[in-house]
């Protein structure tokens, strides 16, 4: 399955809904999307990963890159994920300490700290 991407704005937050597989082949598309959003002035991103079937280290690298970009503008990058198999990858790489991970888009949008 390929990667699907869609965006939506709620207040000052931009929701990026990701579906399908994020791997070495598809990750560049996600990178382009995040770069484009930041270049257009969206600095508070919520990446909704509920539709993601597969995530590898290339995908993690893109998310870390996105975080670095928004932080340069005092922005934020939050993740929404409830899938154990995806969460596991964040845990084994120690990235649960780097990304705020929420259980719903509503919760991520409401979060301020």
């Amino acid at each position: 399955m390929d990667l699907s991407l869609s965006t939506e704005t709620i207040g000052d937050r931009t929701i990026v809904r990701v579906g399908g597989e994020i791997d070495v082949y598809t990750a560049p598309k996600l990178r382009e999307q995040l770069v484009e959003l930041v270049n257009d002035g969206s600095f508070h991103l919520v990446v909704d990963m509920e539709g993601v079937d597969f995530l590898d280290s290339t995908g993690l690298g893109v998310l870390v890159g996105g975080l670095k970009r928004v932080r340069a503008h005092e922005g934020s990058l939050r993740l929404v994920c409830n899938q154990e198999r995806i969460l596991k990858i964040f845990r084994i790489t120690g990235l649960t300490k780097v990304f705020p991970i929420h259980t719903s888009v509503e919760e991520a949008v409401a979060a301020t700290d």
Partner: peptide, 14 residues
């Protein structure tokens, strides 16, 4: 090198 190491980190974690 960083990406390479991240991949290896995932493998050794799994």
């Amino acid at each position: 090198t960083e990406e390479d190491e991240m991949g290896l980190a995932v493998i050794s974690g799994l």
